[in-house]
Simulated assay, not measured.
Amino acid sequence: MKKFLLLAAIALSCIHSSFAQRFKQGVGAGFSVETADYMDTKVNFGFTYSPALFFAEAEKSSFSVGIPLSLGFNEGYSSEYDDYDDFYGSSSIGFMLDVPVILNFNYGAGALSGGRQKWGFFVGGGYGYHLTTANYLYDYDDNGNYRSTESSTFGVTANAGFRIGMGHHHRHNLEIKFSYMKGLTDYRPDVGGVNCIFNF
């Protein structure tokens, strides 16, 4: 994790010194649904801080590199039959962390420093780190309950969405983002999410 963050910081510094024309940031909230083999489905709720460096600006478009950091909590549900064939379920609360590095193509609202467009969109992909507490169906503690364990993964990620220009000359924008991550290490989860972010 430390090596990943260090490489991300170095990459952003290189882009800033060579190409970047503008730095923007945003804050917001959203949710995601996480599934994996032998693990309860998780619904993650979190808050997002989204810094990004914009470069290669054209007439109505630009590219950007960002790290939309999300931190939040999740709830999982477990169910099973006991020795008397009685069905019961239980829920559990955990936490989650998302640290993706994303390269986006931006068009319209939010793409340019002096742009006045009311609408815009973006699409891109990258690589990310995901951390969660997970209830594994095959892992029991001494009392026969599911054991809650901390799991993390690295994987590829993609996102797309649209922006609505806000404020004077639409210099700020409201962003609706749809994202997906496929974990390639450890428990290999699928994580799909929706975020609403105000960029300023």
Score class of each variant (00 low, 15 high):
166 M>G: 15
95 F>G: 14
104 N>Y: 13
43 V>C: 06
43 V>D: 08
185 T>Y: 08
117 Q>Y: 11
4 F>M: 12
197 I>G: 15
16 H>P: 15
180 Y>V: 01
24 K>A: 05
81 Y>W: 06
91 S>I: 11
75 E>T: 14
16 H>M: 14
195 N>A: 12
49 Y>A: 12
89 G>S: 06
17 S>C: 06
148 S>Q: 15
143 N>Q: 12
33 V>F: 12
86 D>N: 14
180 Y>G: 00
54 F>G: 00
112 L>R: 01
87 F>P: 05
19 F>H: 11
155 G>M: 06
105 F>L: 08
15 I>G: 05
95 F>S: 13
98 D>T: 13
175 E>K: 08
71 L>W: 09
22 R>H: 06
138 Y>D: 13
38 Y>W: 15
115 G>M: 07
62 S>V: 00
129 Y>L: 06
178 F>D: 14
117 Q>A: 11
192 G>P: 11
56 A>G: 11
110 G>K: 00
37 D>E: 07
2 K>W: 11
46 G>K: 10
174 L>D: 08
176 I>F: 08
146 Y>G: 09
106 N>E: 02
64 S>A: 06
130 H>R: 07
168 H>G: 12
197 I>Y: 15
98 D>K: 13
155 G>D: 03
183 G>P: 08
18 S>Q: 03
145 N>G: 13
57 E>W: 02
18 S>A: 06
84 Y>N: 06
13 S>E: 03
162 F>A: 09
73 F>N: 14
195 N>F: 10
86 D>W: 13
138 Y>E: 13
61 S>N: 05
145 N>E: 15
73 F>K: 14
184 L>Y: 06
173 N>G: 07
93 I>E: 03
47 F>T: 05
10 I>A: 04
68 P>M: 06
120 G>V: 08
40 D>G: 13
158 A>E: 01
63 F>R: 01
187 Y>E: 13
22 R>W: 07
11 A>R: 08
165 G>K: 00
127 Y>D: 07
25 Q>I: 03
167 G>C: 12
189 P>I: 00
165 G>P: 01
29 A>F: 02
160 A>I: 13
173 N>Q: 10
63 F>G: 05
189 P>H: 02
56 A>K: 09
91 S>K: 14
198 F>I: 04
63 F>N: 01
107 Y>C: 09
80 E>C: 15
60 K>G: 05
173 N>E: 11
153 T>L: 03
15 I>P: 03
168 H>L: 10
186 D>Y: 10
54 F>Y: 05
105 F>T: 04
172 H>V: 00
132 T>F: 07
58 A>D: 07
77 Y>Q: 12
28 G>I: 03
159 N>L: 01
70 S>Q: 14
122 F>S: 01
186 D>W: 10
68 P>Y: 05
11 A>T: 12
48 T>H: 04
81 Y>I: 04
16 H>R: 15
193 G>S: 02
15 I>H: 02
191 V>D: 15
50 S>E: 10
100 P>E: 12
199 N>I: 00
12 L>H: 07
83 D>H: 12
126 G>W: 00
138 Y>G: 09
120 G>A: 12
31 F>M: 04
143 N>D: 11
126 G>A: 00
153 T>M: 02
82 D>L: 11
116 R>I: 15
62 S>R: 00
148 S>P: 14
119 W>M: 04
65 V>P: 09
155 G>P: 02
154 F>S: 01
112 L>K: 00
11 A>F: 08
5 L>W: 08
184 L>F: 09
105 F>Y: 12
172 H>G: 03
163 R>H: 03
59 E>S: 11
38 Y>R: 15
